[in-house]
Design a protein around this nucleic acid. Structure first.
Lengths: 207, 207
DNA sequence: CGCTAGATTGACTGGTCAGTCAGCCGAAAC
DNA sequence: GTTTCGGCTGACTGACCAGTCAATCTAGCG
C-alpha cells in the first residue's frame, strides 16, 4: 500500500539514533546501542538503513532543509535586515530549545565535523550561509548595513557566533535556560548589527 | 645526560603527527602512518608516547599555552580594548599563516571536537575565552564598550567568529591568501566592535 | 490450509588497528 | 673483548564492531 511499508519501526530507530548519538557521540555509538535503545533486533537496523552513516545523514538533511527553508522565507520577507537575521537566529535557537538532542547531533557531528560528515554535507551547509550573506548583501544595497564588510564574511561571523553559543549550551559551558535562549536571540543580533562599542547618540530605533 | 635523551626522533614523530593528522584527520590516521611519515619504526612511537591520544594532547597543549600567554599579555597591556582584541585575533591568524597544519589539527580535532578531545582540554580552552571576556569586561568598566552585553557572551561570539573563519580557510570554503589574512584581522575586530550597521557620524577615531 | 512476501531476529564473519613484546644493534664503559 | 643499556625494530595479539545472512515469524490471500 504505502510507499514506506512500516514507518513505525523505522522512525523508532531514527529517534533512538538521535538519543544514542547525542549521548555517546556518533563515533562511539555502536549500531547495537541504537537497536537496543529502539527495542529492536540488531539486524532490523540494516533492513531500514544501508549503513550507520546513512542514519546520521538522514537526520541531518531532514532537519537542515527546514532551517534552509525558514531562512529563505525570512530573506524573502520585507522585514528589516536586523529582523531577518533575528528570524534566522531565532529559528536555530528554537530548534535547539525543542529538540536539543537532535541539534546537538547536527552541530557536533556534522556542522562542526568538517573532516567527516561536514564534508559530505558541505553544499547544504554552504547554502544556509549563502542565504545569510544575501540578507547582508541586500541590506548593504539598501544602505542599511555598511558596505565595507564582505557579505560572505559577515555570514561566517554570524554562523560561527551562533554555533559557538549552541556549543556552549550543549556542553554546559553556559547555562541554557529558557531565559538565556530569549536573551541570546536578541543579543546575538544586537551585537553583530550594533557592535560592542557604544553608539554615539541614543540607541537606534529598534525594528 | 640531558633530561630528554634523544630529542630528534621524538620531535620528528610529533612533526609527522601534525602532517598526518592534518591530512587524514586524527581518527582515520593510523599510528603506522605517523611512523612511516617520520621514517621511524612503528614501535618507536610507543617508546616516546604512551598512546596515539597523547601525541594529539601534547600538540594541542604546546600550542595553546602560547595562545593563552599571548592573550594574557595583550590583556595586561595598556592598548585600547579594540587593539587588545585585534592582538588576540592577529596571534591566532598568524599562527594559522605560519603553521596551517598544526592549527588545522588544533581547531578541527580539539577545539571544535567538543565530544572527544575538546572535553579533555575544556579548562585550557575556557581559560582563553576568559581572557577575552576580561578584556571586554575591563572595556565596559572604562565605558569604552556598552555594558549591556555579557562579557562571556561577547567572548563566545569572538571565538566562534574566528574559528569559523579559520575553518573556512582550512576547508577552502574561502581563499586564504596573505591578503585575506590581513584583511580578516582588521575586519573581524571592526565588525565585532563596530557592528554591521553604519555609524551615524563619521567613523570613530581608530586606535 | 498452503503459499508468498515482507518484517524480524541475532549469531557470525571479516577487517581494522592500537598497543605489546621479545629481541636486535651500536656505542659507551670497563 | 665483553658487558650493558637505551634506542630501535616490526611481527603479532586481542578487542572491537560494521555489516551479512540464513532462518523464523506474521499477515494477507486464494
Amino acid at each position: 500500500m504505502s510507499a514506506t511499508p512500516a514507518p513505525d519501526k523505522r522512525r523508532a530507530i531514527l529517534d533512538a539514533a538521535i538519543t544514542v548519538f547525542a549521548r555517546q557521540g556518533f563515533h562511539s555509538a555502536r549500531v547495537s546501542d541504537v537497536a537496543a535503545e529502539a527495542g529492536v533486533a540488531y539486524g532490523l537496523v540494516y533492513h531500514y538503513f544501508d549503513s550507520k552513516d546513512q542514519m546520521l545523514n538522514e537526520l541531518f538533511s531532514e532537519r537542515w532543509s527546514l532551517l534552509l527553508e525558514a531562512s529563505q522565507e525570512m530573506q524573502r520577507s520585507d522585514a528589516s535586515p536586523r529582523d531577518k537575521l533575528r528570524g534566522v537566529a531565532s529559528f536555530i535557537i528554537e530548534s535547539y530549545r525543542h529538540e536539543p538532542e537532535l541539534m546537538k547531533v547536527i552541530i557536533v557531528e556534522v556542522t562542526r565535523a568538517a573532516n567527516s560528515f561536514g564534508r559530505t554535507h558541505l553544499p547544504e551547509i554552504r547554502a544556509a550561509y549563502d542565504v545569510v550573506a544575501e540578507i547582508v548583501s541586500d541590506a548593504q544595497a539598501a544602505g542599511e548595513f555598511r558596505d565595507d564588510v564582505d557579505p560572505d564574511f559577515a555570514a561566517m561571523l554570524f554562523y560561527g557566533a551562533i554555533e559557538q553559543l549552541l556549543s556552549g549550551w550543549i556542553f554546559d559551558l553556559v547555562p541554557g535556560s529558557d531565559d538565556a535562549f530569549e536573551h541570546a536571540k536578541q543579543l546575538v543580533v544586537e551585537t553583530i548589527c550594533g557592535g560592542l562599542e557604544p553608539r554615539p547618540v541614543g540607541d537606534r530605533v529598534a525594528g
